[in-house]
Computed example of a mutant assay.
Amino acid sequence: MKIALYCPNKPLTHPNPSGDLIIARGLHNALNRFGHQCEEVLQFRSRWFWKSPEGWCRAAAALTRGFLNAYRLAPRVWLTYHSYYKSPDVVGPWVSRALGIPYVLFQPMYGTRRRKDPRTRGGFYLNRIALKQACHSFVNNLDDLEAMRRIVPGGNITYLPPGIFPKQFARDENLGFEMRRALHIGSDVPVIMTAARFRADVKYESLVYLLHALAKLRLRRPRFRLLVAGDGPMESRLKELARELLPGQALFVGKVPREKMFEYYSASDVFAFPGIGESLGMVFLEAQACRLPVVALDTGGVPQVVRSGETGRLVPRDDGEAMAAALDDLLGDREARLTMGRNGERFIQEERNLERNTLRLSAALEAIAR
């Protein structure tokens, strides 16, 4: 079946990695693996477009371009990934109606508080139009599910848990050993890994929080290494803080291609990232698939992707003491780490497996098209 895909927040070719982009690419790849012809028909990034006359001109041009591309493809379904107040879909509702095909949303978001703020009111109403016109919505976040039920009839919403392809993050002990050797880390040195985009928002806030927590851990357990994967505009400030708080212990390895991440996970003993402001956090799923216990804050959407006490430890937000204590416990208990690692791998295989979850989406889209 031909499917027209549109990602108004970030096109599939966007250079900066993020959880949303990972989900979008995984969705696109999985649908094609199931035999569909899923094509991205438009790369117009609608983020804040309505704030300028030039943005409205770009949106009008995108509407024309989207119609022509979809007309040539002749899809049976239009699928928009992640329409929300910052990046509302102002193309899909009209093109799908013109072509006489179902308009479907995946991971839409709705928050009435955006209506009250003049800075976000325009995006709120534009997004609301898209949500109202969708014949069906699929959500992968339980918080979004509750919000969507306020505007869309319950029968037109389906919850599909977030997932990854587990085989892409299978642990490889031999590669992990080679990676440690390449990084000059002894086999007996505990390794804590973290990964994020170094941008000036909650990602940076989380990394700063982690560095302060590890400074407290250093007082109890001075011998460990921190492996940091990622890059971004805040890199120099993070490195400076790491030199101050963890002299000689933090190793920044730069931006790692996603297909290579499993090598770094395999070289590590624990994955730690606070997850401040995270709606879900795809790195948590990747780490668990690679049999790494996770230590994070018990906040936001993190409990939806990490099972505290089973696949990791979720701790309250304080001055970093609770996170330091949890890491100290895990680094001192190899059996607990191995048990949580096996639990995490099984959790991803059975409940956060993108192959299985997208199979349900595939079947639903075919039923909608019929």
Rank of each mutant, 00 (worst) to 15 (best):
P274T: 15
A215G: 15
E240L: 03
E278M: 02
R220G: 07
G301S: 11
V294C: 08
L245H: 10
S279G: 15
D201R: 12
G232P: 07
S206H: 09
Q288G: 15
S266D: 13
G248F: 04
G300L: 05
F224C: 05
L285C: 13
D298N: 09
G248Y: 03
P274S: 14
R223E: 11
R223K: 14
P257C: 00
P190E: 08
L214K: 02
P303H: 10
R291L: 05
D201G: 15
V191I: 04
I192W: 09
M282A: 13
A196K: 03
A215E: 14
P257G: 00
I192E: 01
V302R: 05
R197P: 02
S268H: 06
A229E: 07
V283C: 09
L292N: 05
A196S: 12
E240T: 05
F284V: 12
K239D: 06
V208E: 14
M282F: 12
G232L: 05
G300I: 13
R291D: 03
P233M: 13
T299I: 12
S236Q: 06
L238Q: 11
R243C: 08
C290H: 00
G230P: 11
F273K: 03
T194I: 03
L217S: 05
A229D: 03
L214Y: 03
R199Q: 06
F198L: 14
P257L: 00
A242G: 08
P274R: 11
A250L: 08
E286P: 06
L217I: 10
R237D: 10
P247N: 06
P257F: 00
A200G: 09
L207N: 07
M261Q: 02
V295Y: 06
Y204A: 03
V208T: 10
V253R: 05
V270W: 09
Q249Y: 11
A242L: 10
E235Q: 11
S268Y: 09
A296Y: 10
P293F: 03
Q249F: 11
A229K: 01
E263M: 12
E286R: 15
A287K: 12
L227Q: 07
C290Y: 01
G281P: 10
A196R: 07
S206G: 14
V295K: 07
S279E: 13
R221I: 00
K216M: 15
L211H: 10
H212A: 08
E205D: 08
A213N: 11
F224D: 06
R218I: 03
A215D: 09
L245P: 15
G275S: 04
L226S: 08
E263P: 08
G301D: 14
A287N: 12
K255H: 04
L292M: 09
A195S: 06
F284I: 05
D231A: 11
G277L: 00
L207G: 06
